[in-house]
C-alpha cells in the first residue's frame, strides 16, 4: 500500500498570535512551527501500516522553503520520502488542487490528512481532495484498519456528534484524521538515528499547477481584550444564578 500523509505546517499550540505588515500577515517572529497535531496522529498511524503491513509512506506539504524543517521532522519520524509543493498555502481549495496532482502522479492508495489545521482552521482540504480525486472519504476518523487483498477492505471509525460510526469502504481512500487514529502516548519523537537517516532521504520540490484560489485573507485582527471577571462569593451562589439569568441572559 502506498500512503501519502498531508502535513500542514502550523504554529506550536503555545504560540501567541500576532499580525504584521498592517495586520495583513501572520507574524512568524519568534513562532515555532510544528507538524499540525491532527497530522501527527495520521503520520503515526501511517508508520504502523509501514511496520506491520509493509506500506510505503510519503509526506507532502504545500509551502515555501521555510516548511522544510517540518518535513524533515516527518522523515525523522520514519516517512520514506517528502514532497514540497512550492507555493504559499493561502486557500484550502488551492491546496487541495495541488495535493490532488501529487496523489494522481504518485498513485497513492491511501491519503491521510488531518481533520483541521490549527492555524487557519479550514477543515476543508481532505474533503476537497477526496472530491477532486473522486474517491471515498472518511472525516473525523478515529480508527482505521485495512485488509490488503483483492478487495482492499477498509474499516473506518468516525467521530459523530455524541458518538461514533463504523464504516465499511475500500481503497482508494482519503481520511481526515485526528486523535484516536493512535493514542497520544503512541506519538513519536524523532530519535538521533531517525534524524541522521532523515538527512539522506529525498525531499523533492515540485512546482505548483495553475489552480483556483477560492479565498484570500485580506486582513487579520486580534480579539478585543477581555473585560475583568466578576467574582461571586462561594457563599452567595444565588448571585451567580441571578447574573446568568438577568445580565448574561443565558439561563
Amino acid at each position: 500500500m502506498k500512503i501519502l500523509v498531508c502535513i500542514s505546517n502550523v504554529p506550536d499550540t503555545t504560540s501567541k498570535i500576532n499580525f504584521a505588515d498592517g495586520d495583513t500577515k501572520f507574524d512568524t517572529n519568534g513562532v515555532q512551527f510544528v507538524i499540525n497535531p491532527n497530522d501527527e496522529f495520521g503520520l503515526t498511524r501511517a508508520m504502523w501500516f509501514k511496520e506491520k503491513q509493509g506500506s510505503t509512506v510519503h509526506v507532502a506539504t504545500v509551502g515555501e522553503v521555510s516548511v522544510e524543517p517540518t518535513l524533515r521532522k516527518a522523515l525523522a519520524i520514519g516517512a520514506d520520502e517528502a514532497i514540497r509543493i512550492n507555493a504559499v498555502p493561502t486557500d484550502g481549495l488551492f491546496v487541495a488542487q495541488q495535493l490532488a496532482e501529487v496523489v494522481k502522479n504518485g498513485q497513492y492508495d491511501l491519503v491521510i490528512a488531518g481533520r483541521e489545521s490549527i492555524d487557519y482552521n479550514g477543515g476543508m482540504v481532505p474533503g476537497m481532495l477526496a472530491t477532486l480525486l473522486d474517491v471515498n472519504f472518511v472525516n473525523t476518523c478515529i480508527g482505521l484498519e485495512i485488509e490488503e487483498d483483492e478487495e482492499d477492505k477498509v474499516t473506518a471509525i468516525r467521530e459523530i456528534d455524541g458518538g461514533k460510526e463504523t464504516l465499511a469502504t475500500t481503497l482508494p481512500l482519503v481520511v481526515g484524521g485526528q486523535k484516536g487514529l493512535v493514542e497520544e502516548s503512541e506519538l513519536r519523537i524523532p530519535n538521533m538515528r531517525g534524524i541522521m537517516m532523515a538527512r539522506k532521504k529525498a525531499l523533492n520540490v515540485v512546482e505548483p499547477i495553475d489552480a483556483i484560489q477560492g479565498t484570500e485573507d485580506k486582513k487579520f485582527e486580534k480579539p478585543a481584550p477581555k473585560g475583568t471577571v466578576k467574582l461571586v462569593d462561594s457563599d452567595k451562589i444565588e448571585e451567580l444564578i441571578d447574573l446568568l439569568h438577568n445580565e448574561a441572559k443565558v439561563i
Binding site: K16, D119, Y120, N121, G214, D217, K218, E221, K222, P223
Partner: peptide, 16 residues
C-alpha cells in the same frame, strides 16, 4: 471569521 483557534480573526475575501 475566526482563525488560529479563536486567537484571531481573518477578514476573508471569496473570489469565486
Amino acid at each position: 471569521r475566526t482563525a488560529f483557534s479563536n486567537k484571531g480573526f481573518a477578514h476573508t475575501q471569496i473570489n469565486t
